[in-house]
Design a protein around this nucleic acid. Structure first.
Lengths: 203, 203
DNA sequence: GTCTATATCGTGATAGAC
DNA sequence: GTCTATCACGATATAGAC
């Protein structure tokens, strides 16, 4: 994947991808991108008309292909317990391979400098789901307590994403290196489903 | 609190506080701050020597007085159940009055443009705690399962902070206005402790 | 203390030669 | 396609009059 790309256009895209993730849209300069791709500013603007355009081209499709399928697991057709383990496991692995993505997305959506909002909307990440139906169904069968899907979903997402969002603080506070951090989030693959399932099962 | 301050210095501080929170250190210009405080750039640099200095003066003390005491509740001397309800309640109320603080802190720590790291370290937010001792003690007494304090603490913090971190997406996705959002996080004051306590009580 | 004017630099984008 | 040179602008910071 990280194969040094042959043509200049791809080199620029790769450099942009890396730098945007690291420093955000506003914090990244066209000069940085050009330098990182071993070329010059003029070529960046030759291939992509502007910095904004480059940003969109780099992230638009990427989302739909990686984040979205995993986020949709909660709407797929699996038994409740399987679904929760599957979601936590897949999402954790995805984030381990792209640890700075969550904070990047949230930051960009706040600043509004980039067109992150448009990208998210186009990606379909905003579509609604049938998770509430499943919870209601299981509750009617007396298998779990009655629960608000939005509350459960938010808690689940929070527990998976938060370690990556606060990675810097977490590492600094507990003297973790990359390996220790990976071990920590791996352990959460078991803890998080246990937490949610303990709650859902009747009191 | 939001009383229009008499002297120029305070007006500049207030404007800076608001704008930094909203757009980050890199996204805020000295011009913005001056304009928002109804004054000019020269005065901003007259009272504070530089933008960096202004940033530090605005946030350095604020943290130790607001966020820190609440974060330390987990180390205070309360019965486990009381402590968890108290922590979630106090932290939620704090964040409702300052909803953009969490994303601001995490963003600044990533970008490294500001001196957020130094401020956090100085504030004492990195000190260790005795939460693990309490969990071990309760587990020995057979009242709860054995649990890793870091995992529990992270999950707790995650569930409280995440709705504020993802506020923009959450509102957009579920068509929430400010009132609906407040109701949502208020409901979590009950849900979050139930989730954590369900997990801690034996399986 | 407050202002206007300006110095100095870094940025995004483009012109034009090759 | 690729480069150098440059424009136009906005940023921080400061000088100096009042």
């Amino acid at each position: 994947m990280a194969k040094t790309p042959a043509n200049t256009e791809e080199k620029i895209k790769d450099a942009a991808h890396q730098l945007f993730l690291e420093k955000g849209f506003g914090g990244t300069t066209t000069r940085d991108i050009a330098k990182c791709a071993n070329t010059n500013i003029a070529l960046v603007n030759y291939y992509f008309r502007s910095k904004e355009n480059l940003f969109r081209e780099v992230f638009q499709e990427g989302f739909a292909n990686t984040f979205l399928p995993v986020a949709k697991i909660l709407n797929d057709d699996f038994p409740l317990e399987v679904k929760i383990y599957k979601f936590v496991d897949h999402m954790t692995e995805l984030l381990k391979s792209d640890p700075m993505m969550p904070l990047f997305v949230l930051s960009e959506m706040r600043s509004g400098q980039s067109q992150m909002c448009e990208i998210m909307l186009k990606s379909g990440a905003m579509d609604s789901n049938g998770f509430q139906l499943q919870l209601d169904c299981e509750a009617d069968a007396g298998k779990i307590r009655e629960a608000d899907a939005l509350q459960v979903e938010t808690s689940l997402m929070a527990m998976v994403l938060f370690p990556f969002l606060s990675m810097n603080i977490l590492k600094m506070k507990h003297q973790m290196d990359d390996t220790a951090f990976d071990e920590f989030v791996d352990a959460r693959k078991k803890v998080i489903p246990e937490i949610i399932l303990s709650y859902l099962r009747l009191p």
